[in-house]
């Protein structure tokens, strides 16, 4: 059987809220090392990879590898019934056709159980190579969210360019153009506001803002977002979930035709 208890159930709620508009359905894969998901959006332009480590749960048991297919909209409906301070336990029997979500209030006075029917989902698993990136930028997640939202009111795509001192986001549209630059700032007194840049090679790539705005829905998961860029490769937009794992998004760059 599979059983996993997350004291901070809100994390699971935030993860599902962050991906439910991007991917329709997905297989949640559980094994000894943890709980994971990999899925492409319906247009196959971006990829979501979630990884929650077994040791990030207060209790974790997985007797055999299971893959549980779920429609994200339905999972979201159920998780919206959990309180923000509730602990969430997920349970499923081997070869079972449902997954049970148990919500426990902090004072343990309220206990609720919701069963979600599992589905067979045919999904393609992609091999994500372990790559060294030309540039890695760590910036406040709220800042990234604001930039991609602001730029989307001007244009459809953003050019992200990274040099050793700064990261620049630029767009053009019918009404004009916009540029936002964030300088490296390893602020020690306010670490939550720091912007850190690590580059081996300056890099500039163009991406669809629509997808970056969708990824930014993961902002509540983490104070910072990590952007990884290499010439002609998909950008990685990574949210680290403290002590539990990470949610990563991959987006193919726009190419000149």
């Amino acid at each position: 059987m599979f059983e996993a208890r997350l004291q901070q159930g809100a994390l699971l709620k935030k993860v599902v809220e962050a991906i439910k508009d991007l991917i329709e359905d997905a297989n949640f894969d559980c094994n000894n090392s943890g709980f994971s998901l990999q899925a492409m959006d319906s247009s196959h332009v971006s990829l979501v990879a979630l990884s929650l480590r077994a040791d990030g749960f207060e209790h974790y048991r997985c007797d055999r590898n299971v893959s549980m297919g779920m429609k994200l909209a339905n999972l979201s409906k159920i998780l919206k019934c959990a309180g923000n301070d509730d602990a969430i336990t997920m349970k499923s029997e081997d070869n079972g056709d449902t997954i049970t979500f148990m919500f426990e209030s902090q004072n343990q006075e309220r206990l609720s159980e919701f069963d979600l029917k599992l589905m067979d989902i045919d999904s393609e698993h992609l091999g994500i190579p372990e790559a060294e990136y030309d540039a890695t930028v760590k910036l406040p997640s709220s800042e990234f969210q604001r930039i991609v939202k602001d730029l989307a009111s001007i244009g459809d795509t953003v050019e992200i360019s990274v040099t050793k001192d700064a990261v620049k986001f630029g767009t053009n549209g019918d009404i004009g153009s916009a540029n936002v630059m964030c300088r490296q700032n390893k602020s020690v007194d306010k670490p939550e506001e720091s912007t850190e840049i690590d580059i081996t090679e300056p890099v500039a790539l163009t991406f669809a803002l629509r997808y970056l705005n969708s990824f930014a829905k993961a902002t509540p998961l983490s104070s910072h977002v990590v952007l990884k860029l290499s010439k002609d490769l998909p950008i990685v937009v990574e949210y680290h979930i403290e002590n539990v794992g990470r949610l990563s998004f991959f987006l193919a760059p726009k190419v000149e035709e």
Partner: peptide, 14 residues
């Protein structure tokens, strides 16, 4: 114009 490639073009199927 600019085109958009599939993510699968970068990461092969496993």
């Amino acid at each position: 114009g600019s085109g958009q490639r599939s993510i699968a073009a970068f990461f092969g199927s496993k």
